[in-house]
Nucleic acid binder design. Sequence first.
DNA 1: TTCTCTCATTTCATCGTCGAAATCCTGTGC
DNA 2: GCACAGGATTTCGACGATGAAATGAGAGAA
Lengths: 330, 330
Amino acid sequence: MADVGAIAGVTSRTVSNVLSGKVAVSPETQAAVLRAVDQLGYRMNTAAKHLRTGRTGSITLALPDLSVDYFSQLAGAVAREADRHGWAVTLEQTNYERQRELQVLLGQGKHLSDGLIIQPYALQDDDIEILAAKQPCVLLGDHAPGLPVDHITMANADAAQCATQHLLNIGRRRIAAVGVNSSGGPHTAETLRLRGYEAALEAAGMLTDPELLAEARRWRLQDGAAAVEGLLSRGVHFDALFCFNDSLALGALHVLSQHGVAVPDDVAVVGFDDIAVSAYSNPPLTTINPGGTGIAAAAVQALSRRLAQGPSEAAVGVVQDFHLVLRSSA
Amino acid sequence: MADVGAIAGVTSRTVSNVLSGKVAVSPETQAAVLRAVDQLGYRMNTAAKHLRTGRTGSITLALPDLSVDYFSQLAGAVAREADRHGWAVTLEQTNYERQRELQVLLGQGKHLSDGLIIQPYALQDDDIEILAAKQPCVLLGDHAPGLPVDHITMANADAAQCATQHLLNIGRRRIAAVGVNSSGGPHTAETLRLRGYEAALEAAGMLTDPELLAEARRWRLQDGAAAVEGLLSRGVHFDALFCFNDSLALGALHVLSQHGVAVPDDVAVVGFDDIAVSAYSNPPLTTINPGGTGIAAAAVQALSRRLAQGPSEAAVGVVQDFHLVLRSSA
DNA sequence: TTCTCTCATTTCATCGTCGAAATCCTGTGC
DNA sequence: GCACAGGATTTCGACGATGAAATGAGAGAA
């Protein structure tokens, strides 16, 4: 910076003023400085700026696994949105591990950042409440209502109820739920989607048949396939599947097709997430669109607000709108 | 750090020594310092360290679009691998834009990092050769042989030839190529895959029928769908599709199914990339597995080597092994 | 002419860490 | 008893930027 100043005939401080634009500088000086900057190909040192100001200009995005479509699409949307706010995005894959989530929340990641957007998986709300105070933080996914941390979520239970309701509306009565995981906490996506499913049945005056709850600890393609294989091999009778996400549903679709089960004639299938491939599966998947880009935008915006306002302001909880996307599978 | 030292009864410098572990420190002092660190919950300031040492501890990963499966899976693998090397990963989405790619290569991103792993799309090799000198850099994707920059690639032409050969082997003679883009440079994946396709035909004593080249400027699901729609609406006769990536193939599969075309009986389909969903499509997609995790690992490793050795060492070019994954679509 | 006011620019110190070199300390050999 | 080796610890400065406050230079008023 001093070098630039030397060429432009001013001090390093004036160069700083020109580049930051926060202090008035005469037009001639400005031009001279900019010329010198250009001539030397000077670029500001981020680390020094960070050290002096305490702001890094980057945020951390922590997700369980980038190779899951929902998360990668979310990551893409967050990156785009962060870019609009002038932030760089540093990525942390937590691999669904409690340990990694703790590290990230405690800010012990390898790289400091101004704030954190995290989708916790293994951590409980109690932990989070304590830990999130360490740094500006926005949570994705479901949490206890009233949690004093900014969080963006979708109406999981309502959406699940809507999806199940749709299956009921088209005359299905033996609707299996795929993705049940008995080890979930009270505010996980799993529990809430299951709750929505049950609520829809109950509203129709039906009881939940435990036989129709297909377990899947993880929600990948192979888990959906395995769950439906299980259903079939146990000889469970069902005429519809409500899958807790699209990957499960695509895995299910695959297995049904392998077994010669017609979709939607024999079995109707509804998914959840509306990932890109779902529109192009055979048959195209009816699913819940949870407004992922909206969630990304809301998250970045919430973080931005938090950084501007400081930790004192009340936490916001945004619930993103969803809608049912009707395609051919149900 | 000084505070920690005060509690432990030593200087900040000794604390630094303990934490870095590079200078000998007596066991008692070490214990005392660690206790103090723990007590204060002290964490080192990354920015200061960066400023002093010139190393950020993070690398930049620049990809066109995270919502493309191949890229997101690559990103996941790179993140995992970088983690093993103790690096944080900063993400840049270039959106296939020349401008963004330039910025990143010039190191004008918002955040400095020790090195760059980039999959260029719009930039030519000539540009890259000049620009990559600005910082340690590993290229992904295809480039002119002998390009003096570290690069990891796959045998695109060979793999495409292998895929096409397979279609010939199973008796197909009217094989359409999906994903052709006449505006590609000489060393893009598109050109190489097309070349492999043509080579296979030629080896079988056949000519390329221009009618069978289905254009697709981008390689997303909808582009594959549109390309095949075009083929069908033009009344082109074909008994196989070689799609330049899996998304195109899945889009194609979708359209074929919509039109009641049986796969593989009427039309065999081969893809390229072996993304996760391809194993679960209907029918499951035969495709080329380009060894994505291998590419990620090789990229991180190459960057690591480059950082250790400095810019003087000769550039390495790694060609990752591929293999044909036989499933039901061909 | 002198004084005040304002805008532009500079001076100075500082953020937290680590490289280099100086200093301290303890034990050893003669 | 003394010089000396060698490990442990400290001192000192610098990395490159910026906040706060001081300085300089004109414009206008008294």
